[in-house]
Amino acid sequence: MLVADEQTLRQQLAACYRIFAMLGWTELIYNHITMRVPGPALHFLINPFGLHYSEVTAASLVKVDLSGAVVGESPWPVNPAGFTLHSAIHSGIADAHCVMHMHTTAGCAVACSQAGLSMDNFYAAQLHGRLAYHDFEGVTVHADEGPRVVKSIGSAQAVILRNHGLLSLGTSIPQAFSYLWTLQRACEIQVAGAGLGATLAIPESIQRKASADALQFDERYGAGADVFSALVRMVDRVDPTYRQ
């Protein structure tokens, strides 16, 4: 359920873009983090096309409809093609209020791996039953791929786009961030351990337990709000202009 007003969400989303920049989760001016705006209309906030994540502010975020068309006025353009993937997920999955997508090196490496994510580390185990895969169909600019993406995701919140990158979704920005951070950490550890020999397998029963105990995803326990708030404070100490 969306409970924050649009201005609050604008500041939170702008902070999230700055957090991605701080963590090095950027791809020049590309990729997107989108958030549904409260209200009956299916409107969403997206980054202005042409700005680096470190330049995004609350005011510069652009409101768009499901087609990617600008709602109201904005001095900034958007990348409608880049919103195609997000639009399909927002419209096809009821609780996908926030959608995050990125192309980190570790994430792309695992996405290109035939075996995918190895469920043999602390972070991967927490994603048992929460992870989905979608096969590569080329650059995600074609609307007809949307229903297949939604079908691939099913009830998952963390997604590996084969040969492409990582994606997460959630009812809030902090929750979606928690899923993406956990997936990214799992990928980093897998890539860092490559070449060290066989890994220790985690029994599926333990994976299920680890996933059930991963309270950072659970709305009853804040759904990652405490961690996200700590990162926002870090951004504030460096450059609070995202609030403008």
Rank of each mutant, 00 (worst) to 15 (best):
Q216M: 14
L28D: 14
R220D: 13
F136G: 03
W25Y: 15
T105N: 10
D120H: 14
E6K: 13
A15P: 04
A96P: 00
F136H: 15
L117S: 06
Q244E: 15
D95Q: 13
D218E: 13
W76Q: 08
Q114C: 04
I46G: 01
A41H: 11
A176K: 05
D213C: 11
S54H: 12
A59R: 14
G193N: 15
H101T: 03
P147L: 12
Y53K: 09
S229L: 11
M119H: 06
E73V: 09
S87R: 03
S229G: 08
D120R: 14
P203W: 07
M22T: 01
L51H: 09
G165R: 06
H52M: 13
E27D: 15
H103Y: 13
M102P: 00
L161C: 02
E73M: 08
H52F: 14
S87K: 05
R233N: 12
E204S: 07
E145F: 08
T26V: 14
G39V: 04
G165T: 04
T26Q: 12
L42D: 15
A58I: 00
A212V: 03
S87Q: 05
F83C: 01
H52V: 01
G224V: 02
V159C: 12
R237G: 14
V110M: 08
Y133L: 05
G165M: 11
W76V: 02
V150E: 11
H43C: 07
R162S: 05
M102R: 04
A81C: 00
H43I: 01
Q184A: 05
R36T: 01
M35A: 14
F44H: 12
Y53T: 00
I160N: 02
H43D: 08
Q175D: 02
Q11K: 15
A156W: 08
A88H: 05
S155I: 01
R233W: 02
G197Q: 08
A230W: 11
H32A: 04
R36F: 03
T171Y: 00
I160K: 04
L167F: 12
I89M: 06
L180G: 00
S205K: 13
T26S: 12
A225Y: 00
G82M: 09
K63V: 14
Q11N: 04
A201I: 07
A125D: 05
A58N: 10
L28R: 12
V62C: 07
P77F: 04
P77G: 06
L45F: 07
G24C: 09
P38S: 06
I46Q: 05
S74H: 06
L161Q: 04
H52K: 13
H97K: 11
Y242W: 12
E219M: 11
F49V: 00
A156Y: 11
G107S: 07
A4Y: 10
V71A: 03
C108T: 14
A223Y: 03
